[in-house]
């Protein structure tokens, strides 16, 4: 397996100006400004094989976008070794640019004043895309993202979601070897998000595109990636298969029980104690709903017996912990750890 991305001990620090508040602070800032160093990446190391799909997740300020910018050659790292498709991104930015496709959700590359088609054609020439390939990729994007009616509209007249769809297509027209997608589904509705994921999956199947994806919508990752890299304040918190991530952090599953009649407070307390004896945990108990968390599948029978004996059940469902909940729990643990 060829390595597409190799990152060793990558570090990047930003300098932030601290402004004193109010008018007085603004006047003071003319003569003197306090500055602080903010480490955005603290020795990040990982590698990605060609054809892999990696989801990069983390809280705001975790260093995801900074890592993306270093990987694409926009930012010069403070230290560390970095190779992307054999190039040192910072030094060989233009050579690398032809082989990668990039979407920065917050910074579209479409030309604001003219029709979408014009940017597509500009990219065709700049990226030196063969006519047959351009015909194939542009048709694919137009079909999957439903771009047909948008192609001749000036970009400034498109909605945020329409712009994002066109921007994603722009990054895929030259069938890049690596697609760096930084929040590519920002501003998209549910249907458009699904279309975007479909395009990503199709590009990977058809062209073997390596994918590096950051997003706050974890469904993007569970739908398109097999591997997750979790960042926390510039450091690596987890790097492994999505299934391992879920196995390690999603130990709990849930039973959600809807009741026929409201449950009395005293009965709720005693129910909690009995569930605990059988490996369960009463997560939530409102008058007509009970949520029970459990770790081992072997507890299900005993817990179900307790619930059936204690409650008048109208409906009962079993839920696996979703990615969103796992990550929320993980962040909460990190915040608590840092507070200690």
């Amino acid at each position: 397996m060829t390595i597409a991305i190799q990152v060793n001990d990558l570090r990047k620090t930003y300098v932030q100006n601290i402004k004193a508040p109010g008018l007085l602070g603004a006047l003071q800032g003319i003569f003197w400004q306090q500055r602080r160093q903010v480490p955005a990446l603290k020795g990040l190391s990982f590698s990605v094989n060609e054809g892999e799909a990696v989801g990069l997740i983390g809280e705001n300020g975790a260093g995801k976008s900074t890592a993306m910018k270093c990987l694409t050659g926009i930012l010069r790292p403070a230290s560390g070794d970095l190779r992307v498709l054999g190039h040192e991104p910072w030094r060989e930015r233009r050579a690398l640019a032809r082989k990668i496709g990039v979407v920065f959700g917050q910074r579209p590359q479409l030309i604001w004043d003219i029709a979408v088609r014009e940017t597509f054609n500009l990219n065709r020439v700049m990226y030196r895309v063969e006519p047959a390939l351009f015909a194939e990729t542009s048709a694919l994007c137009a079909r999957l993202l439903e771009l047909g009616p948008l192609m001749d509209v000036p970009v400034r007249q498109l909605s945020l979601g329409q712009r994002m769809r066109c921007d994603l297509a722009c990054a895929m027209l030259h069938a890049p070897r690596i697609a760096f997608l930084d929040e590519p589904t920002i501003g998209l509705d549910v249907l458009a998000k699904e279309q975007a994921r479909q395009l990503i999956k199709t590009m990977r199947r058809r062209f073997g595109t390596t994918l590096i994806l950051t997003t706050h919508d974890l469904k993007d990752i569970s739908d398109t990636c097999q591997r997750v890299v979790v960042l926390d304040k510039g450091s690596l918190l987890f790097d492994g298969a999505l299934l391992d991530f879920e196995a390690r952090y999603a130990r709990e599953a849930r039973m959600v029980v809807d009741l026929d009649a409201p449950l009395a407070l005293a009965k709720r307390r005693s129910l909690g104690a009995r569930l605990k004896r059988h490996g369960g945990r009463l997560l939530k108990s409102v008058p007509q709903k009970v949520v029970v968390a459990y770790e081992k599948a072997s507890s299900i029978q005993a817990l179900t017996r307790v619930l059936l004996a204690s409650l008048r059940i109208a409906d009962m469902t079993f839920e696996k912990t979703d990615m969103e909940t796992i990550v929320r729990g993980l962040y909460a643990k990190q915040v608590a750890r840092r507070a200690r």
Binding site: T72, I74, A97, Q109
Partner: peptide
Amino acid sequence: AIDLLRPV
């Protein structure tokens, strides 16, 4: 950032 991503 967008200018820098272009291969020109």
